[in-house]
């Protein structure tokens, strides 16, 4: 219970800080909307090729803006020295990692819901109960992105070239999550039968567990000087 309390204390602090300096939320959201608008201009509406590309368009819009937030996960802590202050506290390093994952995940989910809304407005997919099945896929896939992104953000936080290093590391590891998420979305948006959606979600959950566990275990070695 104490660990859960510590996770929530740290995540609530991160969310409070995000709410008080709205620029990161607005910048990320603006970037996502920009991607969707560009795709909207690039693809002709109502054409079959556009319809077939919708899952890919959605995931590009969901994925790329998230990098801004994930890459900056520890930036504020590093700049203000609070990273060390937390490491000095008796909080377990793995607990610190999980709290950062939780706050990043909540942030991404909030952004993702706006992106999904903009996506439906701009690309006009048929909004049915079936379409809403995309939401749990976003929730599960975002957890995996967050776990990997949070771990790598901690690894590169003191690097000068972190803006370059982070995406390279991040994308090379999350390929399985992207494939599973896009495949599940394809099935929901494009196919008649929902034959494999459950399987894809199971794969995403498995990746989430693997990446969260790995991050929890190795975080101690990532943050030590």
């Amino acid at each position: 219970m104490r660990v859960l309390g510590q996770i929530w204390t740290m995540a609530a602090k991160d969310l409070t800080l995000t709410a008080r300096s709205t620029h990161s939320f607005l910048t990320t959201l603006f970037f996502a909307l920009l991607i969707l608008v560009i795709f909207n201009f690039a693809f002709q509406p109502g054409v079959e090729a556009t319809r077939l590309s919708l899952p890919g368009i959605l995931w590009v819009a969901l994925l790329f803006p998230g990098i801004i937030q994930l890459n900056n996960s520890f930036q504020r802590e590093q700049e203000q020295g609070t990273f060390q202050a937390i490491l000095l506290s008796p909080v377990d390093r793995g607990t610190f990692f999980l709290s950062k994952c939780l706050s990043n995940w909540i942030f991404l989910i909030c952004i993702d819901m706006f992106i999904l809304l903009a996506f439906t407005v701009l690309f006009n997919p048929r909004v049915t109960l079936r379409f809403l099945m995309v939401v749990p896929i976003i929730l599960v896939a975002s957890a995996g992105f967050t776990a990997v992104g949070t771990l790598f953000a901690a690894m590169v936080v003191s690097l000068r070239a972190r803006e370059v290093v982070f995406p390279v590391l991040f994308f090379s590891i999350i390929i399985p999550i992207i494939l599973a998420a896009v495949s599940a979305t394809q099935e929901i948006l494009l196919r008649e039968q929902l034959e494999y959606v459950g399987k894809w979600i199971q794969i995403l959950v498995a990746f989430d567990v693997i990446f969260l566990s790995a991050g929890f275990l190795v975080f101690e070695y990532v943050v030590v000087e």
């Binding site: 309390g5 204390t9 409070t16 008080r20 203000q80 060390q84």
Partner: peptide, 25 residues
């Protein structure tokens, strides 16, 4: 430990900073 830097959250109040770290301990 007190380092060169303040190790405080600029966007939180002084009291919130103390409460936050009190929670961690």
């Amino acid at each position: 430990y007190v380092s060169h830097r303040s190790m405080l959250y600029e966007e939180l109040t002084g009291f919130e900073n103390l409460l936050f770290f009190a929670g961690l301990y």
